[in-house]
Amino acid sequence: MKIVIINYGAGNIQSIKFAIKRLGYEAVLSNKADEIRKADKVIFPGVGEASSAIKKLRESGLDDLIPNLKQPVLGICLGMQLMCNRSEEGNTVGLGIFDVDVLRFSKSVKVPQIGWNQISDLKSDLFKGIQEESHIYLVHSFYAPLCSQTIAISNYGLKYSAGLKHDNFYGTQFHPEKSSDIGERILSNFLEL
């Protein structure tokens, strides 16, 4: 199986590569359209600020490529947010895969949310074998509200989408690569889709 982690200069992708290796697979880092298109599974990571991340995607033409991919694609954290219509962060226009706008957490909660939280209302094979209320690790200041594409819910002052799915596109707000054995199972589920 060929696994590609999209490398567009945003965030700590080493951890994702290692997590995949622990599951017994090898992933390659790439920003080349051909290589990404040929992959069996594509992971779209991201840590950082939305408008500068989308700018990097545009510079390498990946903004056109990603929405047209046919194989399973998993966006993680900022990656998931960039797959949405828009983000309040830097007033960014996203890739429009998930039909929802990303908003900033209100001032009533500590921002960013850093740490462990729980996921519930789990849908889709991505969460096969995962119990409701399982703990996952998150670091984020912006969130995708609940919508028809929500496949996991978390609660931080309000309920929001911890997971999204549209056709072959999946997104997790949390970091499966940092969420211990639960996260490893979710990554493994994705690789076995």
Binding site: Q14, E177, S179, D181
Partner: peptide, 11 residues
């Protein structure tokens, strides 16, 4: 750091 990141799945 590199070797820890290789082995552990928590922050």
């Amino acid at each position: 750091v590199y070797h820890v990141a290789e082995k552990v799945s928590i922050p």
